[in-house]
């Protein structure tokens, strides 16, 4: 790791101030994406602003017809939240599938979303539920937030404070785990909230998380696996690497969507 200065603010305002004074600085949430990259010397932030002592950034709360999760809430805490398991177990399953238990003990929803790793699980849930990302400056719809791999709508000095998920009656996540990294080789989040039907895919696309309009359209008639039987998505634009071909990833998108639908309807 290159050296850096280390800061531990206790308010969002202080954190924003520190970022403003350290333009090459980075926020440190759970650290499980950032620190490994820094250890490999692939990132060289001049300062780390640790958010762990900032008040009011953790917890899972029911607010009207939404579930609001503090950005610094760790995956393990989201996964075991009774509130969430009650109203939307399909979302609770997402942090429960991230990485491994120790990663879930430390990693946070805010960190995961801000990083927008193309194989991360939470981006699929955000896009698949039409979540709203709430920062210290504004509210950003998930459809506008994720802008390609490792790229988001976040501006300099902007800090994710919370994420608000509308409660969908039917929602489920199905993931094909990468055997080495634990990330999603392909992950599909499906949801139905009234007439809003979403199918969001992570891991497969070369530009990061994306929706599948053809599937969503077909599911409008009936939200069941049968409705997309025989449907495929093109392999163009799928990731290609030693772990999976574009064709296989495209195929998995169909398979996992159907499995997620079965789960959501169970």
């Amino acid at each position: 790791m290159y050296n850096f200065t280390f800061h531990r603010p206790t308010t969002v305002r202080q954190a924003a101030g520190l970022l403003a004074r350290n333009p090459d600085g980075k926020l440190l949430a759970g650290g499980h994406s950032l620190l490994p990259v820094m250890k490999q010397r692939l990132a060289q932030p001049s300062a780390l602003v640790d958010l762990s002592l900032v008040e009011g950034m953790t917890g899972v709360e029911l607010k009207g017809r939404s579930v609001v999760i503090g950005a610094m809430t760790r995956h393990a805490d989201v996964a075991k939240s009774d509130v969430l398991k009650e109203v939307m177990p399909g979302l609770a399953a997402v942090p429960g599938s991230v990485g491994d238990p120790q990663v879930r003990n430390r990693g946070t929803i805010g960190g995961s979303i801000a990083n927008n790793d193309p194989n991360a699980d939470y981006p699929a849930a955000c896009l698949g539920l039409g979540a709203t990302i709430i920062t210290n400056k504004r509210r950003i719809a998930a459809d506008d937030f994720f802008q390609g791999m490792y790229t988001t709508a976040l501006e300099d000095g902007e800090i994710i404070v919370k994420v608000s998920f509308p409660i969908a009656k039917k929602a489920a996540y199905e993931k094909f785990k990468h055997p080495a990294s634990g990330f999603a080789l392909v992950g599909v989040f499906v949801s139905k909230r009234g007439s809003d039907i979403r199918v969001a895919v992570t891991g497969a696309g070369s530009e990061g998380v994306f929706r599948v309009p053809t599937f969503e359209e077909a599911l409008k008639k009936r939200f069941t696996a049968k409705s997309i039987e025989g449907m495929t998505i093109p392999a163009t634009g799928m990731n290609s690497d030693i772990h999976a071909s574009p064709e296989y990833r495209a195929h998995l998108v169909s398979v996992l969507t159907k499995r997620a639908l079965n789960k959501a309807n169970a």
Partner: peptide, 23 residues
Amino acid sequence: LMEGAVYDQAGQLVTGSFMDYSM
């Protein structure tokens, strides 16, 4: 089922960490 060291044509080890080399 899982393991295989893969070099690309330039000789870079593609499976150079536990993130990519499955065990």
